[in-house]
């Protein structure tokens, strides 16, 4: 195996206190097993960027006290309802929330991957999302007088962390249709990926896979983690463990219930 391949513990060693950490939405491959390894090690003061929304992963990170700032377009447990630790943290003011809108997160990451300082975006003008974002500006379209657009500064995360179905031992990672993971990898200083399986052949040799594969150029480390997105689903591989998700949604309604769930989750292996 190459230097790209590590254990989950080694993988998350690349996420330091205070890091800006980008994570994907539930459908795109959330690195739950790696998140468990990260919390076991202990981490604090994260600036989490939800690309473009987040769910149980970030709710657990918030509940565990690992998040200082959260930039996202939404936090939800989907059909299991509100994200209880997020909700409590916002109410109590224990995290800083930077409310965004989905295409703004995507756009700001695209600015970063192109090395641009900012990117313009439509919409937003007249919303309180814009009012409360002091880092966003309304500017004039330089090509058309009177046309105003919102300018978003690039988001350049320190680390991207996600889970994918397949990688090779060189560190090439197949992401299928979840192309925003490619953008996140391009935009981030380091990209850490847990995967269902690591194969010996080079994925870039297969033209059918290559276009949906993040080249190792952008990948810092990979680690094998079968069922590494559970209890969330991994598209094409396994469905969500709805029983565990429902149990979390119920337990995390109180700080005590969350703590009991977390203690159990940190010591479990699935």
């Amino acid at each position: 195996m190459s230097a790209m391949v590590s254990t989950l513990d080694e993988l998350v060693a690349g996420i330091g206190d205070g890091a800006m950490l980008a994570v994907p939405k539930d459908f795109s491959g959330v690195a739950m097993a790696a998140t468990r390894a990260l919390l076991k090690r202990g981490v604090k003061d994260l600036h989490v960027v939800g690309v473009p929304v987040c769910g149980i992963q970030v709710d657990i990170l918030i509940g565990a006290g690992a998040v200082q700032t959260l930039e996202t377009s939404a936090v939800t447990l989907g059909e299991h309802g509100a994200a209880p630790r997020f909700t409590a943290a916002v109410r109590d003011g224990t995290i800083q929330i930077l409310d965004a809108t989905c295409p703004a997160i995507h756009g700001a990451l695209q600015a970063a991957e192109k090395g641009l300082p900012f990117i313009p975006i439509r919409g937003l003008i007249g919303s309180d999302v814009l009012t409360h974002r002091r880092d966003w500006r309304v500017i004039d379209n330089p090509f058309q007088a009177g046309d105003r657009v919102v300018a978003l500064p690039a988001i350049r995360p320190d680390v991207a962390l996600f889970h994918a179905p397949l990688a090779d031992r060189h560190g090439n990672v197949w992401i299928g249709r979840n192309r925003e993971l490619m953008t996140v990898a391009h935009a981030s200083a380091a990209t850490l990926v847990s995967v269902e399986e690591i194969v010996d052949r080079n994925l870039l040799d297969d033209p059918v896979l290559a276009a949906a594969t993040i080249p190792e150029l952008y990948v810092t480390k990979i680690a094998a983690a079968p069922r590494g997105a559970a209890p969330l689903a991994l598209a094409g591989r396994y469905p969500a463990d709805t029983e565990t998700l429902a149990r979390y949604a119920q337990a995390a309604k109180t700080a005590e219930g969350f703590r009991a769930f977390l203690d159990e989750w940190l010591t479990s292996t699935t």
């Binding site: 929304v53 509100a82 916002v90 109410r91 003011g93 809108t101 989905c102």
Partner: peptide
């Protein structure tokens, strides 16, 4: 805002 009495998930893509 931001310390709302009841917090909902967030704006998603609506502002666009």
């Amino acid at each position: 805002y931001p310390s709302v009495d009841v917090r909902w998930p967030g704006s998603f893509g609506s502002a666009f």
